[in-house]
Amino acid sequence: MPKRVDHEQRRAQIAEALLRVAGERGLHAVGMRDVAAEAGVSLRLVQYYFQTKENLLLYGLHHLAEGLGARVGARVAAAGGEGGPRSVVEAVLLESLPTDEESRVFHLVYTAYAVLAVTDEALAAQPFIDGPRAAEDLLTRQLEAAREEGAAVPGLDARTEAIGLLAMSAGLGTSVLVGQRSAEAATAVLRHHLDRLFGGTPAR
């Protein structure tokens, strides 16, 4: 009998190859032929699944966001089950910092997507901003929960603080990528601000 193909697994394989190539050469330099070679499949197969480079880039963006979500979940679980609001907030922010090869590729490629979204109508229309909006909503909910539990400073403006934390994380991540500071220094800055918001309560 012919071997049954898991199409979603094959798409993910190709998307992973896209992210590796983009992490090495930059998103602007990625071609479908390069991705096929990296994935160890034919160009025809990449075209079969995605038809155009635009479709491949859109799928790659979703795959990138899913990977971040999985790593955040793993970090929260490693901290002890679901953890408190600070655990979730800290996990989201720290996973966005380029502290290892996987997170370095994430930050580099995600930043490249942000630049591309400025001029690419398909990315700018909705897909790119969906991820940042979801992260902002998640952090806002966690900060609101912490405020209601008395685990955050009184009167905390959850939405404003969520926006500020995400912007800070993005800026710190870029500063690590370009060698302005170490990942450890960036992590210390983020935790300093979390201590301010959560009254010095460590993540549990």
Rank of each mutant, 00 (worst) to 15 (best):
108 L>T: 14
109 V>W: 03
110 Y>M: 13
112 A>P: 00
113 Y>P: 01
114 A>L: 14
114 A>M: 14
115 V>N: 07
116 L>D: 07
116 L>F: 06
118 V>A: 15
120 D>T: 10
122 A>R: 15
123 L>T: 03
123 L>N: 08
124 A>M: 05
125 A>L: 10
129 I>Q: 11
130 D>A: 13
132 P>T: 08
133 R>W: 09
134 A>S: 13
135 A>V: 01
136 E>G: 11
138 L>R: 15
139 L>V: 12
139 L>Y: 04
140 T>A: 14
143 L>T: 05
144 E>W: 02
146 A>C: 06
148 E>V: 08
148 E>N: 08
148 E>Y: 07
149 E>A: 15
151 A>H: 09
151 A>W: 08
152 A>W: 04
152 A>R: 08
152 A>F: 08
155 G>F: 07
156 L>W: 08
157 D>Y: 06
157 D>M: 03
157 D>P: 13
158 A>V: 05
159 R>W: 11
159 R>F: 11
162 A>C: 04
163 I>N: 01
166 L>V: 04
168 M>T: 13
168 M>I: 03
169 S>L: 00
170 A>R: 11
172 L>K: 00
173 G>N: 03
174 T>L: 13
175 S>W: 00
176 V>I: 12
176 V>S: 05
176 V>F: 03
178 V>W: 03
182 S>G: 15
183 A>T: 03
